[in-house]
Simulated scan of single mutants.
Amino acid sequence: MDIYLLDWASLLLRWLHVITVIAWIGASFYFVWLDNHLVRPTADDLKAKGVDGELWAVHGGGFYNPQKYMVAPANLPQDLHWFYWESYWTWMSGFALFVVLYLCNASQMLIDPRVHTWGAPWQAVVAALGFLVVGSAVYDIACQALGRTKDGQIGNDGRVMAVVAAFVVLESWLACHLFAGRAAFLIVGATLATMMTANVAHWIIPGQKKVIAQMRAGQKPDPIYGQRGKQRSVHNTYFGLPVLIAMLSNHYGMLYQRPDNWLVLCVLMAAGVSIRIFFVKRHKGVNGWDSLGLAALLIGGLIVRMAPAPQAAAAAPVTLEQVQAIAAQRCLACHTGEVAQKGVRLDSAEGLSAHKAQIYQQVIVQRAMPLNNATGLTEEERALIGRWARQP
């Protein structure tokens, strides 16, 4: 029953997480697109109101005319629509999923003795949480120390992002040498996601609230709050795709079960940034094919580098009895009897044959099973299972 309820908790949390991710990233992408398509108004009445940019759009059978004020309109309306719950719920649902699947099951999901030996599971849990805290602190210090131009204005994002990139490379290397590969990828992605939500919670929304409070009090709004919010919002849009690829990649053992898995993660994240740069340029009317080409080069390079070596033809067919012997030693700890994980039973010839395609996908293609290779499946045994699965 515990496993059954855990599966439901995992499913519902994952569903909530995906819903909120779509809402948050979708809103972020839309507002970046909107900012890059605004044009300065020509009408005198709009200029008099302080409108800095506007555009006309058509969607769903209606016409829309968004207008942006810099720093704020002269008369603040009472009914304001805020965009923050998407960010908060994305982080909370993702963190809850991380706790349920990884931290509460640290000995299996977080720790891989072949990578690093921890004295106790709680030490790995504390270290994993430490990555999130330290990452957010490093990024925030970089923004405050380096995120200004020589004349004191908000800017110099290149220096900030260079620090973030260097930190991500270091964190990826360290995480992949301390935790199971699957968990390490997730931790790095979660660190960036924590930076993003911290931007919303500690800078963007509080800054907007201060501007509103100043206006309600009849004071002139300080433009610094809008500038800081804009800076952090721009950073978030470049963090988004690297976070998504880190989250998706932990479903593919071929990525994280490699000695150079940290490098694979860094390359995938760099490709995500390049793809986002292409879209941002595209929004501005510039075809940044160089950015898209770089992403394709990075991903293509990974595909070539990670391609498995050609296997020699088997001298003799692999029998089901041979596979049963391997399964008995490597698989039955989780896939036997009524408590078989995911309902996949491999304790009989019928079970192995019925799940032949799944075995090939999980053991050979994705290399996701055994989980963290806890039972020590050898490469020779994996190759034998692959030959059996490919047999007619």
Rank of each mutant, 00 (worst) to 15 (best):
Y4S: 10
L5V: 15
L6F: 09
A9K: 10
L13Y: 01
L13T: 11
L13R: 05
W15L: 15
S28T: 14
V32R: 12
L34W: 05
R40G: 08
P41M: 06
D45L: 01
K47V: 12
K49G: 04
E54Y: 12
E54M: 13
G61P: 05
N65A: 10
V71I: 12
A72V: 09
A74L: 10
N75R: 11
D79R: 09
L80E: 13
W82F: 06
F83C: 03
Y84K: 14
G94P: 03
N105C: 01
I111N: 08
V115K: 07
W118C: 03
G119S: 14
V125S: 08
G130P: 08
G130F: 09
C143E: 11
A145D: 05
T149L: 11
T149Q: 15
K150H: 08
Q153G: 11
Q153T: 11
I154A: 10
G158A: 09
A166K: 01
V169H: 01
L170Y: 08
E171Q: 14
W173P: 06
A175G: 04
H177K: 13
H177I: 04
F179V: 10
A190T: 14
L192A: 13
A193R: 00
P206E: 09
A217Q: 12
G218S: 07
Q219F: 12
P221I: 09
P221E: 12
G229D: 07
R232L: 15
R232C: 00
S233E: 03
S233W: 09
V234K: 15
N236Y: 01
L241F: 11
V243M: 15
V243H: 02
I245V: 15
M247A: 15
L248S: 05
S249N: 08
N250H: 08
L255M: 06
Y256R: 00
Y256S: 05
P259G: 09
M269S: 05
M269I: 01
A270H: 03
A271S: 14
V273I: 14
V273L: 00
R282P: 02
H283G: 03
K284S: 12
L297H: 04
I299C: 11
G300C: 03
L302C: 07
L302Q: 09
A307L: 10
A309I: 03
L320M: 08
Q322M: 12
A325F: 10
A325E: 15
A328W: 04
C331M: 07
L332G: 09
L332I: 07
C334R: 06
V339R: 12
A340H: 07
K342L: 13
L346S: 06
A354H: 14
H355S: 14
Q361K: 14
Q362P: 00
A368F: 10
A368T: 12
N372M: 00
E379Y: 05
E379N: 13
E380I: 03
A389G: 02
P392Q: 08
